[in-house]
């Protein structure tokens, strides 16, 4: 969906990491199975929510396949991220209904307020922003989802308040 590319993320605060041993353990578990690559990626993704570049090469070596295959799978499925997500993952719905009711303006405003592009994470590691196609809450459009919580009928001017409310317990 969105084009993915690697950039240096080492400075991002709070990014989770997988150590070499953990990677090896996951590789060992799936090695030799026909769906090893996808399973390895899914498992690692479920642990740290993104796949760092150095791990791509480790996976390639461990499964004895070219790194290009790993990159291919990684960039094919939109759910896989190449950058660590923020503490609060914001998904803006750009499905038909939300779009017709102005969700692109919400996305614009979020980009402005957070000063990032869709697909990126704020430098403090707090918020990441993503455009998605239809969250299935069409009757409440336009909606955004933050960490599995759906916010109905969002208006651009309410965005700063919503972001503040995230941080309250």
């Amino acid at each position: 969906m969105n084009e993915k590319h690697y950039q240096c993320n080492c400075s991002l605060a709070g990014a989770k990491k997988l150590d070499e041993q953990a990677v090896d353990k996951i590789l060992q578990k799936h090695r030799g199975k026909p769906d090893a690559l996808l399973q390895v990626l899914l498992e690692m993704h479920s642990l740290i929510d993104y796949i760092p570049e150095n791990i791509v090469f480790q996976i390639a070596e461990g499964l004895d396949i070219p790194p290009a295959d790993v990159f291919g799978m990684l960039t094919y499925y939109p759910s896989f991220k190449t950058a660590p997500p923020g503490k609060y993952k914001i998904s803006v719905c750009l499905g038909t209904n939300c779009y017709l009711r102005g969700s692109s303006r919400i996305l614009e405003r979020l980009c402005q307020v957070l000063n990032i592009e869709p697909g990126d994470t704020t430098p403090d590691g707090k918020f990441s922003l993503e455009a998605v196609r239809c969250l299935g809450a069409c009757a409440l459009s336009p909606v955004i989802m933050i960490n599995e919580v759906v916010y109905p009928q969002v208006e651009p001017q309410k965005i700063p308040d919503i972001l503040i409310s995230c941080e309250k317990p």
Binding site: M1, K33, P34, D35, A36, L37, L38, Q39, L42, G72, M73, Y76, Y77, P78, S79, F80, R133
Partner: peptide, 23 residues
């Protein structure tokens, strides 16, 4: 669980995705 590719709703792509290939 799918991994976010719309085309995986197509029968043969869905099968490829379950098999661990690109859908």
């Amino acid at each position: 669980e799918g991994a976010g590719a719309f085309v995986c709703g197509e029968e043969t792509a869905l099968i490829a995705s379950i098999e661990g290939q690109r859908g």
